[in-house]
């Protein structure tokens, strides 16, 4: 390699100016280590530039190192002080306000949820009371209707007396022939045992012929024990027997509870 030609090319001047690429600078660096002439040339160029640039420093200051030294000492010793000063009162009060606002919002949300649940409970209670009133009204109407039936002069009243082992039981039939229906008041019967039902019979006496008017499946659950039953028969008597669930074709006479004969016609 022609060292002299390399020096004359002007590449070293650009090297000192910082106008070479990283790769080119590395090449100059490697050559400088190998060839003292190149290093010497670089040092002279650098020295000339330093003198020239220093000459343009129109400064009467002595450029004391003290200021710089103090600053780097500050940076090294007090990093915490610097970082704390970054957070001024505005930052803290901002975060505090955010926290207060957030908590307030949570409280309000919770309060609102509580109130809505209270409203729901009251609404449910109101609904329950309304249902009770409606029930009471319909009970009242049923009672009135029943009372009207019993007061009707066309209705025949037939008491059914207790029979045999069941002498202490009783029932009553109110027969409305115009509407072909009977109202059975069975309050004097005990509750039907498990698996058994009361069956109501219409009877003609000569000859004795029973006709089933049906079973009272809801006897145990009914409150007033008054049952409306259709009856289009020319009944001469009514009887009630206890039968297996589902009822029987003919009455079981051993289980005849009450029996009553129609004594008058309207």
């Amino acid at each position: 390699m022609d060292i002299n030609a390399y020096i004359q090319s002007g590449v070293l001047e650009l090297y000192v100016a910082g106008a070479l690429s990283e790769k080119e600078s590395k090449e100059v660096y490697d050559l400088m280590l190998k060839h003292p002439e190149i290093l010497k040339e670089v040092l002279e160029i650098e020295s000339a530039i330093i003198k020239l640039t220093a000459a343009t420093s129109k400064n009467t200051n002595t450029h004391t190192f003290t200021t710089v030294k103090d600053q780097i000492a500050n940076n090294n010793n007090n990093p915490k002080v610097v970082s704390i000063s970054k957070y001024n009162w505005l930052t803290y009060s901002g975060w505090a306000a955010t926290l207060v606002l957030g908590l307030g919002l949570l409280w309000a949300l919770n309060e609102n949820r509580q109130l809505q649940s209270d409203i729901q409970i009251v609404e449910n209670e109101q609904l329950f009371l309304e249902t009770q009133i409606a029930d009471a009204k319909s009970d009242l109407e049923a009672s009135k209707a029943l009372l009207n039936v019993l007061r009707d002069r066309d209705i025949i009243s037939i008491p059914l007396g207790g029979q045999g082992n069941f002498a202490n039981t009783y029932a009553k039939v109110y027969w409305d022939r115009k509407t072909n229906s009977i109202y059975l008041d069975a309050q004097g019967l005990p509750e039907a045992p498990e698996g058994k039902v009361y069956q109501v019979w219409s009877l003609t006496l000569n000859p004795l012929t029973p006709t089933s008017l049906g079973t009272i499946d809801n006897f145990n659950t009914d409150d007033n024990k008054i049952f409306e039953i259709t009856n289009a028969n020319e009944s001469q008597a009514f009887g009630i027997t206890l039968e297996p669930a589902g009822g029987s074709e003919t009455p079981t006479m051993e289980q005849l509870y009450t029996l009553g004969v129609v004594t008058s016609s309207p």
Partner: peptide, 26 residues
């Protein structure tokens, strides 16, 4: 400090040439 003494005048000159204000350059 030694490096500072070697180059501070030079750097001040370069900076002053660009900003043309002695205090800013300092």
């Amino acid at each position: 400090e030694a490096l500072y003494n070697m180059y501070s005048d030079s750097m001040h000159g370069v900076i002053f040439n660009i900003v043309r204000d002695n205090d800013i350059a300092e």
